[in-house]
Write a protein that binds this DNA or RNA. Sequence first.
DNA 1: TTGTAGGCGTTATCAA
DNA 2: TTGATAACGCCTACAA
Lengths: 337, 337
Amino acid sequence: VVRADIHQVAAVAGVSTATVSRVLSGRGPASAHATERVRAAADRLSYAPSARASSLRTDRSMIIGVLVPTLSNPVFLPFLRGVEHRAQDHGYAVIVADSQRSEEVERRQLDRMAAQRIDALIVAGWAPDPDALRRLSGSGLPIVDTGTFADAMGGMAASLGPAIDRACAHLASLGHRTVAVLAGGSAPGGAAALRWRLIERSCRAHGLEADLVLLGSVGDRDPVTTARTLGALVRSPGGPGVLWSSSHPLAAELLEGLAVAGVALPEEVSFLTFGDSPWAAAYRPAISVISGDLGAVAEAMTMAVLHRLGAVESVPDPVLEPDVYRARSSVGPSRAA
Amino acid sequence: VVRADIHQVAAVAGVSTATVSRVLSGRGPASAHATERVRAAADRLSYAPSARASSLRTDRSMIIGVLVPTLSNPVFLPFLRGVEHRAQDHGYAVIVADSQRSEEVERRQLDRMAAQRIDALIVAGWAPDPDALRRLSGSGLPIVDTGTFADAMGGMAASLGPAIDRACAHLASLGHRTVAVLAGGSAPGGAAALRWRLIERSCRAHGLEADLVLLGSVGDRDPVTTARTLGALVRSPGGPGVLWSSSHPLAAELLEGLAVAGVALPEEVSFLTFGDSPWAAAYRPAISVISGDLGAVAEAMTMAVLHRLGAVESVPDPVLEPDVYRARSSVGPSRAA
DNA sequence: TTGTAGGCGTTATCAA
DNA sequence: TTGATAACGCCTACAA
C-alpha cells in the first residue's frame, strides 16, 4: 500500500512538515495562505495522516475497544451498534473482541487490545474474568463495564428489578402460584444469574414460588429432548403455571419445544422471556417480555468514555429508557384459577 | 496509561534493545541465556510491545477492517463473528465499521480505517459505494467482498439460485401460480435486489408469476398498515398464493401483520423467507426458509485474506455449505388447487 | 550471538 | 507565523 506522507505534502505545498501538521490537525497557528496551499497539496496527493504514527507522538490511538462475552447472542448487536455509532461520530475506530465466555480467550483479547494501545475499553455484559479488567483499569486504561455503569446510573436492579416486579405482580394477579425459570448451562451465569436472583426475590414478595430449571449447554440441547422435558415439566402434578426464559435466544428454543410437545399457550402454561424482538411480537400468542434498550446503554457508556477521553465536552444526562414489562397474550390466567 | 517500553526491559535484562526485540519477536538469533533473562524481565515488567510502534517499522498494523452495511440486521452478526474468530486465531485485531447504507458514512469509515492503516478489509454484503472500494483496492489494500468472493467460489447464484429453484419447484408442485416478493424501501437494493432477480427468473422457469411488492422504509411501516396492506393483497381477487419475504427481519413484521389481519397460514397463503433462525423454526406454522451460512462465508473470506497477508500457509479448500431450501409447514397447497 | 544506530511518520518544542 | 529538530517505541541492517 503506497501512501503519500507528510514530507511529500510539505514539498508540494512549499512549506515545512510542521506547518502541514499544524494546518491539518488544526492545532497551532497557520496563515490563510499556508492553510490553503497545504489543503490543496494534501487533497491532490489524497494524503491522510497515519494514525499509528501520530498516536506514537500523541499517545492517543483513536481506537476504542469493545469486549463482548459472545458474538453468538444477538442481544449484543444493538450494544455494538451503539458503541460504534457514538465512537464514529467522534472520530474513533472500534475494535471488537469476542471473549467467547472464556477467561483464556478474554486474556488474549485484552492483550491484543493493549498491544494496539486502545484509548478506552467498553465491556458488554459480564466479563469472564473481572479481575483482569480491574487490573487493566488500575493501569490507567479508562474502562466502563455494563455492571458498574448501571450501578452508577442508580443500579441495574433499579430498572430491571421493578420491571420484573411488575411481571410478577401481573402473574400473581392472574392466579399463578409457581414460576419455572429456564436457563441454559449447568449454572446461571452472567445476566442469567442476576435475573434469577431478582426473579426469586420478587416472586417471594408476591407469594409466588420460583424454581430454576437448567437445560444444559447449547450443544447438548435438541428440540425433541427439550420438548419432552418441557412437556413433562408443565404437565407434572403441581407443575409450574409459568415458564420464564432467562434469555431471548433460549425463548425460541423453548417455544419450539412447547409446540412440539403440543403445549397450548397460554392455556396450559403462561410464557415470558427477557428481550424483545419483532419475532416475539409476531409469535402467536404474542410473547410477553421484559425488555431493555441495550443500544441506548451502550451509547451512554460510550459517551461517558468519550468524556473521560476529553473527546466530548459534556455528556447529556444519560436518561436511559428503563427496562419495561410488556404484557402480551402469552401470559394468561392460571389454569388452576 | 503507564507502560514499560523496550528500553526498560533491556535495562532490567542487562542486554540491548535489539536483543529484547529479537527474543520476543522470535526473529533472529538469541542465546538461551539472553532469552531467559529477557523473558523474565519482560514478564516482571509485564511488557507488551506496542503494536503501533512496531507497525510503524514493519508496516503491518495487525488490524483487519470489516465493513458492514448495517449493524441493525442480525444476519451480519454471524458474519462478524466469523471474521473475528479467524482473525483472532492469527493475532489480528478487528475494526468494525458500519456504513449505515450511506455512501457518506461509508467514505468516512473507509478514511478512518485507512488512517489506522488496516492490513486488509473485508466487506460484508453490498457496499453503498463499490467504486470507493475499487479505488482502495487499486491502492494496494487487500480487499475481499462478499460478492466477488462468492463469484470466485463459483458464483453466488451457484448456490443461492438452485436453492431458490427448489423452493419455486416446490411451490409450483403445490399448485401455486403467483408469488409476491415483499421488500422494504422503495426499490430492492443489495441482497434484496439479487434475490428478486433470481426469484423472478426461477419463477418464470416454473410457470409462476412473480410480483415485487415494496413496503416502504422501516420508519414508514407500522403493524396496522402492514396488516391492512397484506390482508388486502392476499384477499384481493387473483391475489398471490405465496408471500416471500426478501429478508429475515422483514419476515417477523410480515408475520405480525398477517396475524393481525387474521390471515391463516398456510391455508390462505403460503409464506417463506430468506434467512433461518430459531424463531422461524419455532413459529407455528414453522416458517419455510432459504438459508445460507454467512458465518462460514466470513470465515472463508478471512482465511483468504490472511493468506494474502502471509499470515497463514495455505487456506483449506473453502468448501462452503451451500444455501438450502428448508420446506416447513408455512408452505402448503394452493387454495386454488 | 550481540550491540549500535538509523529510520518508520508524526507532533511538540523552541528559536527565529 | 514559520521551520528545524528531537522524540514517540520499535525493528533491523550492519558492524563487531
